[in-house]
Each structure stands twice: as structure tokens, then as C-alpha cells.
């Protein structure tokens, strides 16, 4: 892990995060209540309060290649608890985006893959087709029978339809995707790792 204060301007990364998320991480005085409340903290290599600390000390590489930003489930417990009212969820979202844009290798490939299949499904139908999504994801992660038992149970109760259902306003969905196209394209071509 690289230690702080590189040759660049020390506020560079926190300023970037502020510009993109609107959140000022310099307000954080490291009480740790975000990490204390985080339901996924036990799975995280770097706790949320440390992510904020690393942003404060310009440790961009460590942050953008961490698994924490991908494990965050956006449950907002951290934001609810934060005495300085820093919206960590927005920060995490910005960090994920930066990580992709700048071509960092995602240490949680499964999560990234899942997100992509999810978006593809939304793009095609305007909503998620659960069956298709899970089949694609499980195949891609080479565990095709992973959710079979639960899937059958859900299917029997009519909870997951066999065929995908398109929503009415597909024009608007297309519009949304067209607007975010530049970003998605960069993301698609940006692989490669760093």
C-alpha cells in the first residue's frame, strides 16, 4: 500500500470526489460510526471510515482498487448515522464510477458482472427479467445450478415469469441509455486493468 502525500496536490482526490458527489469528506473527523453500523463491514478489507480517510490523504489508487467500494450495498446506514451528515453512499457511487472510468481492475468481478447483466436486462426490457439475469450470471460464474432450488420454488408461486416482459415506456428507457452512452462506452472499452 502506498503511503500518503504524493507529489501531486494533496487535496486533488478529495476535490475530485467533492466535485462529482457534492460531499465534502474533509468534514469527517473519523469517529467511525459509519463502519460501526455497516452491515457488510465484516467482509470489507478497508472499512468505510478508512475509505474516507484515504480520500482525505489523496490515496487514490488504494481507494479505487479496493473491494470495499464494490461491496457497499448502498443501504445508507452510514449516512443515517454520520454526525457530519456525509452521504457515503453518493461517495461510494462516485468511487465506483471513477474506478471504471480510470480503468482500475475490479477485485470483485462477480459484482461487476452482475451489474452489467442487470443493466443489459433493463436496457432490453425496461425492467429486470430475474430468470434470465440469474441464468446468465450463474452460467458466467460457472455455477449453473446455484439458485436452482430457490428458483423453482419462486417459479411455482408465480413470483418469476418465464418470459421477459417489456414495459410500456421503452422510448424513455432508450433515452436514458442514450444519455449515459458516453460513459457506458468508455466503461466498455476501458478494461485492461492497472
Amino acid at each position: 500500500m502506498r503511503c500518503l502525500l504524493v507529489e501531486e496536490e494533496v487535496h486533488q482526490f478529495s476535490n475530485l470526489v467533492k466535485a462529482l458527489s457534492g460531499e465534502d469528506v474533509s468534514k469527517c473527523y473519523q469517529c467511525g460510526k459509519c463502519s460501526a453500523g455497516c452491515p457488510i463491514a465484516s467482509e470489507m478489507e478497508i472499512l468505510p471510515n478508512r475509505i474516507i480517510r484515504l480520500i482525505q490523504i489523496n490515496s487514490k489508487d488504494t481507494v479505487l482498487s479496493s473491494s470495499t467500494i464494490w461491496l457497499c450495498a448502498s443501504c445508507e446506514t452510514c449516512f443515517t448515522r454520520c454526525p457530519e451528515e456525509i452521504d457515503l453512499v453518493r461517495v461510494m457511487d462516485v468511487l465506483r464510477r471513477l474506478s471504471l472510468e480510470e480503468g482500475y481492475r475490479c477485485p470483485e468481478e462477480g459484482i461487476l458482472r452482475f451489474n452489467r447483466f442487470f443493466l443489459a436486462s433493463v436496457k432490453n426490457y425496461g425492467r429486470v427479467h430475474e430468470l434470465g439475469l440469474m441464468m446468465k450470471y450463474n452460467l458466467a460464474s460457472r455455477q449453473p445450478f446455484k439458485d436452482l432450488g430457490q428458483g423453482i420454488a419462486l417459479f411455482r408461486r408465480g413470483k418469476i415469469p418465464l418470459r421477459p416482459q417489456r414495459i410500456k415506456g421503452m422510448d424513455q428507457i432508450k433515452g436514458i441509455f442514450a444519455k449515459s452512452k458516453p460513459f457506458l462506452e468508455r466503461e466498455a472499452s476501458g478494461g485492461g486493468g492497472r
Binding site: S35, A36, R81
Partner: peptide
Amino acid sequence: IRGRVSRIYERGDKLIVKGTDTLAGIP
């Protein structure tokens, strides 16, 4: 323990205090 408590709840006749040790970096 350096870190703010996030939650306190009852379990049986005990109270569970959930926090984080920000120095050790673990919940």
C-alpha cells in the same frame, strides 16, 4: 476503543454494543 458506537440492542438479558475499532480497522 477508538470509534463511535453505531447501535445498542438487547439480546436476552445482555446488551449488544456494536461499534468499530478504527485503530485496528475492524468492527
